[in-house]
């Protein structure tokens, strides 16, 4: 069990190692439509996490026997670049990334109106260029924006963030140091407007009170992230409008 004996001091004078408070997110940067050849795309930065999400489709589902005559099939691929970690990661899917792909797909599934495109596939790729804990949440956030950019009908956007326990305190949005030496890590994905949780995982041990406190923290942060996602999408068009007016 990780963090059984905390050999690293993660909280000093009420601040975390990177100077953040307990309920503070890392900086977030969102660019929409960064890939020309994809139907929708998004570049997302969460602290030192860098991810590009690309959406293709709806397009023909292969293999054909996996088609659904009533609705589209969503495919999600989470992939870490070999250079995204400290030690080179062996390229290609592994146990961990297959699991994350499945979890991420299921986090987005409730908002995608799959019934609009019978027999088709909607393919989502989340490519991690740099990682610093919380990559799956960054991937989900990016994918959600990329899906909107691709013009896929959705009930809402999905926002995601992780909370965890370090040095006995519940804190928001763990970085790699905190994740490796902390006591628990809990990624949450939700639909901000309706407070519907679409994904929830937990690694480590939390008491009921800690869990509830963590969930509350995560839900608050998802609302913040939702606003950033929404603003990024809307500004993309108001920006190009201003540019035209300047000409």
């Amino acid at each position: 069990m990780k963090g059984e004996e905390t050999e690293v001091e993660l909280i000093k004078e009420g601040k975390r190692l990177d100077g953040r408070g307990f309920e503070e997110l890392r900086h977030i940067k969102i660019d929409v439509g960064v890939l020309k050849r994809a139907d929708g795309s998004c570049y997302f930065e969460l602290g030192d996490n860098k991810v590009i999400a690309a959406v293709y489709g709806p397009r023909e589902m292969h293999p054909r026997h996996a088609q659904d005559a009533k609705m589209a099939v969503v495919k999600f691929r989470y992939n870490m670049a070999p250079f995204s970690t400290d030690d080179r990661k062996r390229p290609g899917p592994d146990r961990r990334s297959i699991e994350i792909s499945k979890v991420s797909r299921e986090a987005l599934d409730p908002v995608i109106m799959r019934e609009y495109y019978p027999k088709m596939a909607i393919e989502v790729y989340a490519e991690l260029l740099q990682s610093d804990a919380g990559t799956r949440t960054a991937g989900i956030n990016a994918a959600s924006v990329a899906l909107a950019d691709a013009g896929i009908p959705m009930r809402d956007l999905v926002s995601s963030v992780a909370v965890g326990k370090i040095d006995g305190e519940m804190v928001l949005d763990l970085n790699a140091m905190e994740d490796n030496h902390g006591e628990a890590d809990m990624p949450v994905a939700m639909i901000a407007r309706t407070n519907t949780i679409t994904a929830l995982q937990m690694d480590g041990r939390l008491t009921k009170e800690e869990f509830e406190r963590g969930l509350k923290l995560a839900m608050g942060a998802c609302h913040q992230i939702y606003e950033l996602q929404r603003t990024a999408l809307i500004e993309r068009y108001s920006k190009s409008e201003n540019k035209k007016e300047e000409e």
């Binding site: 908002v111 909107a148 009930r155 809402d156 929404r230 809307i234 068009y237």
Partner: peptide, 8 residues
């Protein structure tokens, strides 16, 4: 007015 999925 630009909207995103889920906007009222």
């Amino acid at each position: 007015k630009v909207v995103v999925p889920g906007d009222f």
